[in-house]
Structure formats: structure tokens, C-alpha cells
Design a protein around this nucleic acid. Structure first.
Lengths: 219, 219
DNA sequence: TGTACATCAGTGAACGCGCGTTCACTGATGTAC
DNA sequence: TGTACATCAGTGAACGCGCGTTCACTGATGTAC
């Protein structure tokens, strides 16, 4: 056993990346509250002071997580929206993807959508939106804010209201997964896809394999 | 200045209630994270150990807050639903009320809807629902969970899906207020009513008094 | 009506804990010559 | 190709802090007789 090769090298190589990934794992396993600088260091096998060489303070780490989370979420939305060239359907598909992504990454979703870490008014994350999602999509939040603050009439069918409806619907269902409300009812991440499709207006067929799943969580 | 009458009496009278109310004020002003047993005691003018005479531990205080929050929220929903005898409209009105209540009580909403403190599968808070809200309303969450877990088909028009849509929509819009996303865009609690009405399908007229509000927050 | 006493709601001092953060340091790396 | 040195990414010990919680206590209240 040559010691030299077994021992961790003094320099990590890409500690910053490793810290981010360990943070994501950590919050995924134990929730956002469990995210402490010390614990993240521990997980990577580094001293509790080491992270400060890459992040000014705890807040900076959270900000970096928010950016990373938004990047990943953005990618998922764009990938889903590419499933259709018809704008409305592309929008719906991205809504389904939003719900699924949030259900699968509840803790990261929480950080990524917390305005304490990210600025809703600024430009969206740096991912290339497909044609079907272009347009008002990118300035949606600021356009909406302007409309609302202007005091103008808000027709129920106003394009911005339609879009807000779609986004709020996805956010609402996503929140039920993220908060753990669905989990406490025995509804799991595996159900996210079906619920998302049905709630966005698709008729979802019965599950193929005989589902005794209803048994596992009481009547 | 008679000392006796000026000094706070040794016994508080209704410290439990006072602690709950101070807690609600505290989270309203400084957020859920600021809720510490010591600070609540401080606000009421009592030692930091006193609260433990009424709540076994911090968690018990949070649970009591969740119960109180749900009671208040339930009352608001019921009161709003009484605005119509037509079930769909009553449901819509309660959605508007939900959004407004959440916008006005963001911190309490957060605690009240956190399944760490409250059980979604159990009966809803103890408020008398008006006729228009009776029926599946009360068993909605468990009915929905059963349907989803059964693996049965989920038609987009299934009554439980329709209702989930409505609830998720309200929750989504509420979340935008609660999280501070709207606030960071300059959309305030005062706008909650209009947004809620428009998003639930009502055509909202322009604000009567000339709104220079759009000026206060940039272009 | 008066007194003894059990009960209970508060006090205030103290504790252990884990956190975020700082600090002087040291090992490793890369670059100038 | 070899050496001196600046730079930087880590270490590990230490700190101050505020928290949740416990404890022995004491002041006030209500009740039995």
C-alpha cells in the first residue's frame, strides 16, 4: 500500500464544484435547513474552513446553489418544450417538466426559486430557449409586474394572465411535492408525471402494471 | 406613582395566548426563521424559560401556530365562499380569499401549510363549511390521494382533477406572494385581490384612482 | 372570616451545542530566469 | 534542465454567539377547614 497514492492530495482539484455537488446531495437528503458550511466540508473530506476559499460566506454558497439550480431547471424546461413546435403545447410540456423537476429536486427547487437568492426581475438563466418558448417568455415577470402596477384593466383572457395561470398552476402542484404535502398523503415523485399531465389538461390512462400501490399507504 | 399598579403582575393572565400572538407578530415582521423561544418571551416581557410552562418545546409552539393559522385561514375561506350559493363560484371566491389571506399573512401561511406541523391526511380545521363548500371538499386530499395511488385513469375533467387545478392555481399565486417573488417585482399585497380575481377568471376593471404606483418601482 | 397549605406560573442563572467565521500556518504548484 | 520564489488552496485550532433547554427557586392564587 503506497501511502502517497492512497492519501488524498493536498489540493483537491475542483473543490468548488465538489462543494456545490455535495451541497445539492446534502439538501436532497436532509433538507435545506441541514445545509451548513461545516457539514458540506465534512462531506467532501475537507476542513470546515476550506469552503471559505471558494465562497465568501454561507450566503454566497446559497446564491451559487440558486444559480446552479436555475440552470438545471431551465435546461429541463427547454428540453421538454422542444417536444412540440406549437407554442401552447410547448408551454404545457414545460409546465409538466417543471412539476416533475420540482418533485425530483424539492430542496434545490426551494433554493432556486427563493428570491432571497435570485432576482426575479433580472434576465432568466442562460439557456437557449427554443423557438416555441421565445417572445414574451423571457420578459414575462417584468411585463406582468408592469401591467399589474399600471392599474390597467386585467381581462381574464389577457395573454399575461393566461401565462400567469399556467405558471401558477405548475408552481402550485410543484409546491405540493416540494413542501411534502403530497408525500404525507402517500403520493410520491413517481406520480408526478401523471398528475402533471392530468392537471395540465391531458387525459392520463390507467397505469399499465397492476397497481397495488394503493395498498402500501392505508385504505 | 404607585409602584404596585405600574409593575407588571407576576402572573400574566393569559400568557399562552400572548405568546402565540407575539409569535405571529414576530414572524410577520421578521420571518419564520426569526422565531426563537427566547425572542418570543422577550416580546411579551417574560423570561426566556417562561414559554416552556405552556409549550413543551419549540416544535410544540410551531404546531400551535400551525393550528391557529389554519383556523384563521379556514375562517377566511368560509366567509368568502358564503358570497355565493353556486358551488363553482363559491369555490372560486374561496380561491381568491386564499390568495389574499396568504398575501397578507405570508409567514403564518408558510407554517400553516407546512406538513411538518400539520397533517394533510387528517380532518380539516374545525370551522363550519357553508353548504356550497360541503361534500368532497372535506375529504378532498384523501380522495385525491386514493385516486392517484390506485393507478386508475386520470381524465383531465375528473372532478378531483378540476378541484386540484383550482387549489393548485390558488396555491401557486399565493406562493408568489409568500415567497417574496412578487414583492421583488414591486407587486404588493394591495395587488393581491385584483390578481386573484383575474387569475381565477374574472375580468378586473382598471383601478379607479389614477395609479402612479407604477412609478414607485422603476419603469 | 381567617389561616395553612398545595398548586402553579413565573424567574434568572446556567449548561452544552453547533454554528459561522477568522487566523496564522503549511504544503503544492507554476513560473521567471 | 534546475532553482528561487510568489501564489494559492488547503489545515486545524480557536473564537464568540445565540440558541434550546433545564434547574432550583419564589411569588401569587385558590381552596379546605
Amino acid at each position: 500500500m503506497t501511502r502517497k497514492t492512497r492519501t488524498r492530495p493536498y489540493h483537491h482539484g475542483d473543490l468548488k464544484r465538489a462543494l456545490l455537488e455535495a451541497s445539492i446531495e446534502l439538501i436532497h437528503e436532509e433538507g435545506v435547513e441541514a445545509l451548513t458550511v461545516a457539514e458540506v466540508g465534512r462531506r467532501v473530506g475537507v476542513s470546515s474552513a476550506a469552503p471559505y476559499k471558494h465562497f465568501a460566506d454561507r450566503q454566497a454558497l446559497l446564491r451559487a446553489l440558486a444559480v446552479e439550480g436555475n440552470r438545471r431547471l431551465g435546461e429541463a424546461l427547454v428540453a421538454a418544450a422542444e417536444g412540440s413546435t406549437e407554442p401552447r403545447e410547448a408551454f404545457r410540456l414545460s409546465g409538466v417538466a417543471y412539476i416533475r423537476w420540482a418533485a425530483e429536486n424539492p430542496a434545490l427547487h426551494r433554493i432556486a426559486t427563493d428570491p432571497a437568492h435570485i432576482d426575479y426581475a433580472s434576465a432568466p438563466p442562460d439557456v437557449d430557449a427554443p423557438e416555441a418558448l421565445k417572445g414574451s417568455m423571457e420578459t414575462f415577470w417584468t411585463d406582468l409586474a408592469e401591467l399589474v402596477r399600471s392599474g390597467a384593466a386585467l381581462p381574464a383572457s389577457h395573454p399575461l394572465m393566461e401565462q400567469l395561470r399556467g405558471r401558477a398552476l405548475a408552481l402550485g402542484v410543484a409546491s405540493l411535492f416540494v413542501s411534502g404535502a403530497f408525500a404525507s398523503l402517500g403520493i410520491t415523485t413517481a406520480d408526478a408525471e401523471r398528475i402533471a399531465r392530468a392537471v395540465t389538461g391531458e387525459d392520463v390512462p390507467a397505469t399499465s402494471r397492476r397497481s397495488k400501490a394503493s395498498r402500501t399507504h392505508g385504505a
